[in-house]
Design a protein around this nucleic acid. Structure first.
Length: 573
RNA sequence: GGUGGGGUAGCUCAGCUGGUUAGAGCGCAGGACUCAUAAUCCUGAGGUCGUGAGUUCAAGUCUCACUCUCACUACCA
């Protein structure tokens, strides 16, 4: 029993997220959070929308809305999408909240007091037509290397060469197309990461339970040497740069903090908002001098976010010299790809969270995405694979098991858990199987090995089918009803066990199963683990306990459906 | 260009610090059963572990080179 703080990388405000975003941080964090709650841990799962930065301003502009109105609407849309996917956030906040403004400014000020912030002048492209500075990738022009005409200021899509916007021939604004652009001097705050390099190295080396992917990315950056990083931008939308007394810092009118400075701080700020709204104490989660030293902090993210979570944010925390909680365990994912290519919001390639639920129930997506989580490499999403895992694993193995035994129990035993029968080799085999597999399953959840946890879950479901084959109550029924009762009784206990085990992954179907089995809410947790308790699991329903046969849990995905979706979503283009 | 991840049965992936006949699921073939969403259960076929060298008594597992692929490369987030 321990306190576990969980965060998933903040989804950017710029549109409803696609399945790749979902699969790479929010969904696994949710599954982990649910499993840890079932195991009796005190869990706090925090997420929020990441709302600042140029893309948010431009997206709002494109929609013809003010930035604040746009973010309000998109925050609600993302919150709703999360709810529909059954993401069990304890709090879904916003990086634009008042608390985050305050906390971000606090961190900036204390870092400055520690001598870790420096003001420097740099050159940046300014677009007169747009009336704004442009981030490198929003400047386009001809590539000086290969002549590609739509090279971006940071990198050429034609030849892949890294560029500086100054190098571009005939540069123009990617926002308006205007060629009226110029280089201007601009002053910004730089966080002196280089000073903290050794502290970070020490911390990263001590880290345990990080995937290979995460530690290798962190070490790579450290080996190259951390550069000081600018933490402000020339933008209107964001957190203003204020002095301790609340006045705007001189020379920083019209500037805000860089989103990657304030976004991770929003993990803390969102916790403060959660505490304020629920009468809770946020400090026991985040302040190691006020109870958080015993909290385990677990972060979930895609591989693109690893550097920010292993280096940038820890720099902020360590540099403050204050007693803030650092991440303990970190889970990084590769990408889910769309038929091997990138999901793309702007090109509308792939399936997005809101569309997905018009196609299939959230349980289907949750199972498929977690069972095929991109843990060791990128994983291609295809409709065929989706159909396969849903039909085979959910419909055939689990759904059919529940259906066959509950229907039989209702047909032959009046829907009541029957009494009698002798223990045979079938029951002994089953118990051995469960006492081997359930501890493994729990271990996989604890170590956040999702594919393995799903494979184990599936194997446990399959063991139920195999048990029924061995016990064959329908055969015994002709000669020995008591022995048939044994198979049915164990089978019904398995149904409720399967429902209990399925809760983190497919919460809706699990609830349907447990409701049909008349299992009360307080008997759905995972307080098992010892072998005695596991043997009790298959004999826990009272004799005479009434059960129902639920409606078909997982209607199958038909070939016609796949064909329609493939056409609608245009496969691999 | 640099760095990192990945390249293992038709497909998706396991294989820890090198050690008997390289594993799972799906798919495929055959069989069993008939309680069930024609579901389930059993058996089987199928792999020179990206390529080429090297280290070792022994390499999918270590080293080097090459190759394909994906990502990151600090001002998109």
């Amino acid at each position: 029993m321990s306190k576990i703080l969980i965060t998933s990388a903040l989804p950017y405000i710029n549109g409803v997220k696609h399945l790749g975003n979902l699969a790479g941080s929010m969904l696994p964090a949710d599954v982990y959070a649910r499993a840890m709650r079932l195991l009796g841990h005190e869990v706090l799962y925090i997420c929020a929308t990441d709302e600042h930065g140029t893309p948010a301003e431009l997206a709002a502009q494109a929609e013809g809305e003010g930035t604040v109105a746009y973010c309000n609407a998109m925050h609600e849309a993302q919150k709703l999408a999360g709810e529909k996917f059954k993401l069990s956030y304890d709090y879904f906040g916003r990086s634009s909240s008042a608390s985050n403004h305050k906390l971000t400014q606090h961190f900036a000020n204390i870092l400055e007091e520690k001598g870790l912030i420096e003001e420097r002048i740099s050159q940046q492209v300014y677009s007169n037509a747009d009336g704004r500075f442009l981030p490198d990738r929003y400047v386009e022009g001809e590539c000086p290397n290969c002549g590609f005409e739509k090279a971006r200021g940071d990198q050429c899509d034609g030849c892949g060469k890294l560029l500086d916007p100054i190098d571009l021939i005939e540069p123009y604004s990617a926002v308006s197309g205007s060629k009226d652009v110029e280089i201007r001097d601009t002053n910004h705050l730089y966080l002196k990461q280089s000073v903290l390099s050794d502290d970070l190295k020490g911390w990263v080396n001590k880290a345990e339970g990080w995937p290979h992917l995460a530690s290798s990315i962190a070490n790579k950056w450290l080996a190259e040497g951390l550069r000081d990083r600018s933490i402000t931008r020339d933008l209107k939308w964001g957190i203003p740069v204020l002095n301790r007394d609340g006045s705007v810092r001189e020379g920083f009118e019209g500037k805000v903090f860089y989103v990657w400075f304030d976004a991770p701080i929003a993990y803390i700020a969102a916790t403060q908002d959660w505490a304020a709204e629920n009468g809770k104490d946020w400090k026991t989660w985040w302040r190691t001098d006020e109870g958080a030293e015993n909290t385990k902090y677990v972060q979930f993210m895609g591989k693109d976010n690893v550097a920010f979570h292993t280096l940038s944010f820890p720099t902020t925390i360590l540099g403050s010299g204050e007693s803030w909680k650092l991440v303990d365990r970190l889970k990084a994912f590769n990408w889910v790809t769309w038929y091997g290519g990138k999901f793309s919001t702007s090109q509308k390639r792939g399936v997005f969270m809101d569309q997905a639920l018009d196609i299939a129930p959230s349980d289907y997506w949750r199972w498929h995405l977690i069972a095929n989580a991109p843990e060791s490499s990128d994983t291609a999403f295809t409709w065929d694979e989706f159909q396969l895992s849903v039909n085979s694993d959910l419909a055939n193995v689990l759904g059919n098991f529940v259906n066959r035994i509950t229907k039989y129990a209702c047909g032959k035993f009046e829907g009541k858990v029957p009494e009698g029968g002798e223990i045979t080799a079938a029951e002994e085999w089953l118990l051995e199987e469960l006492s081997k597999r359930i501890p493994m399953l729990i271990n996989y959840y604890e170590t956040r090995e999702f594919r393995k946890a799903m494979a184990e879950t599936r194997a446990i479901w399959a063991a139920g089918n195999e048990y029924l084959t061995q016990a064959a109550p329908w055969t015994h029924y002709k000669t020995n009803i008591k022995q048939a009762a044994m198979g049915v009784r164990i089978g019904l206990n398995l149904v409720s066990l399967f429902g209990i085990l399925a809760q983190p992954i497919i919460p809706d179907a699990a609830a349907k199963i447990l409701d049909a089995m008349n299992i009360s809410e307080n008997n759905r947790s995972w307080n098992f683990g010892s072998l005695e308790k596991i043997s009790y699991l298959v004999n826990t329903l009272p004799i005479g306990h009434e059960i129902n046969s639920p409606e078909v849990l997982f209607p199958k995905i038909e070939d016609d459906d796949v064909e329609i979706w493939t056409k609608k979503f245009k496969g691999s283009d």
